[in-house]
Design a protein around this nucleic acid. Sequence first.
DNA 1: CATGAATGAGAGTTCATTCAT
DNA 2: CATGAATGAACTCTCATTCAT
Lengths: 205, 205, 205, 205
Amino acid sequence: MRSNSAGRQPSGSLTEAARRSQIVSAAVTVLAGRGFAATALSAIAGEIGISKGVISYHFAGKAELLQEVVRHVLQQAAEWMTPRIQGASSYAEALRSYIVANLAYLDEHRAEIIALTEVLANARATPGVEQIFRDSHREAVAALQAILDGGVAAGEFAQLPTRTTAIALRAAIDAATTAMRADPDFELATFGAELAQLYGRVVTR
Amino acid sequence: MRSNSAGRQPSGSLTEAARRSQIVSAAVTVLAGRGFAATALSAIAGEIGISKGVISYHFAGKAELLQEVVRHVLQQAAEWMTPRIQGASSYAEALRSYIVANLAYLDEHRAEIIALTEVLANARATPGVEQIFRDSHREAVAALQAILDGGVAAGEFAQLPTRTTAIALRAAIDAATTAMRADPDFELATFGAELAQLYGRVVTR
Amino acid sequence: MRSNSAGRQPSGSLTEAARRSQIVSAAVTVLAGRGFAATALSAIAGEIGISKGVISYHFAGKAELLQEVVRHVLQQAAEWMTPRIQGASSYAEALRSYIVANLAYLDEHRAEIIALTEVLANARATPGVEQIFRDSHREAVAALQAILDGGVAAGEFAQLPTRTTAIALRAAIDAATTAMRADPDFELATFGAELAQLYGRVVTR
Amino acid sequence: MRSNSAGRQPSGSLTEAARRSQIVSAAVTVLAGRGFAATALSAIAGEIGISKGVISYHFAGKAELLQEVVRHVLQQAAEWMTPRIQGASSYAEALRSYIVANLAYLDEHRAEIIALTEVLANARATPGVEQIFRDSHREAVAALQAILDGGVAAGEFAQLPTRTTAIALRAAIDAATTAMRADPDFELATFGAELAQLYGRVVTR
DNA sequence: CATGAATGAGAGTTCATTCAT
DNA sequence: CATGAATGAACTCTCATTCAT
């Protein structure tokens, strides 16, 4: 019995929002499991036992679906991390929380992250996605830079090229995805701790 | 201006090596300019005004061509950087040279780097490429780690989690590609200098 | 005149089974009319005014379609002959019925038989077909040999090398196909009657 | 040292006739070994280490080469069998010799026979071949019928439908090829002896 | 004579999309 | 809302043929 307010749903028929969400999830699964090139609409539909037409009905096209995938993952990541980052009593602690929270998210949402990577890698084949990604990345770097700028302004951190540092750190965090995909034994938690330590040294006066 | 000693190639017939090389270059151009998904054999052939069949004649398949692209760029990068890295009188200088040389290469071979990125991002769609890339990346990280380990052992560097540092730094260097693609005004040289300074701080005792 | 109970199929959309059957028929027509090498999917599709994609939609590949052609013809032949062979009161009559029924089938299903011949002749180019054919041929020879063995055991027939006789007779029946293709005036019925007479002599004590 | 009257042949250069013969042999080998569909000019050329162009130089086209293959095998078969058939002292002996000689040829020239089969099966894809084959088959049947007619006229054989008998016997002989290809253990010699015995019964008054 | 390079047509297949039911 | 059928374009790959050297 579904927690479905309507109560009476001819099997396979879901509300608009629920269907879209279900399809986005299936897309994530297929992207993560088989890669971008193998992510045909038929594969996504097959994943949840519906016909291709359903996807076309609920999304304007494949591009819109993939945009939705990207939006979904980025939003989920933001929601997941926000509470884990807030409430730091110092900039140093904020920086550490940021790093650790990011890697913890990667650790617990591997499929989403791999799916995201696959779509981003093919951004040019998917109109709209490039922009979403660019905005998101800019935001992420800006947020990180804000912490660094704050720490520097407060005299807690040493003088730093904050933008370059933000980009470099952001890249190091993202690199964990690659490392994790290439090496099954790669430990995200250890990497996160050491990265936090490393950048702790970087910012120390 | 071709370095064509014969100087006389009237018809469209080139020698095996010259044609392969020309096709690889065209592939790089198309990959960089239009992205992986748009890099059909017809697009590559069109780029140099030959028919699709010529590519099939010179390469066993698209996969072999893309492998060749990857090999070509990786080898070119290695050849370009080697002389710029050797001859450092200290580990710190070696580290700085490594960073600066890497970013200078990116700066001067944007098309190659973007092409490489496109292929690697779609490694799952191109048998053989994943292995080449993995080997190359492992090597690159190992080379970097060797410098760090050397510095630590010599007492020149502080105690560091050298592997994590190597991964993080390598990622920061690679991130310059993304940044440069996203922001036309991004200055690789400045980024390189600041990154060198940053990791200078990281390794300092 | 199609046996289409619904009677109303306005657009080009048919049910799965109907379409598959229609495509198999078209394949038979093209195979018989133009030969194996000229039987491209586009030719089959053109025969019934659909696009190539439809065939790919209903069959996993060309191989599956050709297997289906073979299965269809073999099954049709079996169904057609069974009632014409049963009910013989002696082995001699069974043998005669077998020969005559076979040739009558050839006579009335020329296209099917020619199509079958074309596919079988190119069995190496069509995975799966060789096995189907081999099984079918073995069965056919075995059935014939069973009649001969029965007649010999019952004392109705002379002592014979039954396997060789079965192969030779089976070949003679199949040869009618070749003869009929080579010579438009070849009369299958006469050939059948004479062949029956001939092998009547062979088995007579 | 080649038994070559010219004496001086730049490696790879043969006389017209020798080259054509060499290419025909290679075609037979490839046809027999890999089947019609896999018999590309490149495969034939590769078999003897020459380039495709050589074949185009010596033959007007693929069709002419395949015609030559058919002619070569048919002629070889005729030459091989003639001395083995002549000199029979009775029609019965002539018939037996004919059967046995045919099967002996099949036994000792499997590659040629399989190659022939492959080309004939695709006769419609190769202009000219169909006619050659038809003529040859007509001749073969006529030769056989001549023996039968002779035996009947001489009162040595029973009254027979000689044409049907000739076709049936010819088919039985050809069927040995199929049987031999399908079953590696099939014994051509035994089959030949039994077939001779069988048709001995057929013709006996 | 022989070669290697190039062509161009055509093959089978995949897939996003459309649409009647 | 959902479906299954169909489309049509694009893709990679194969191959007989042509031709300058």
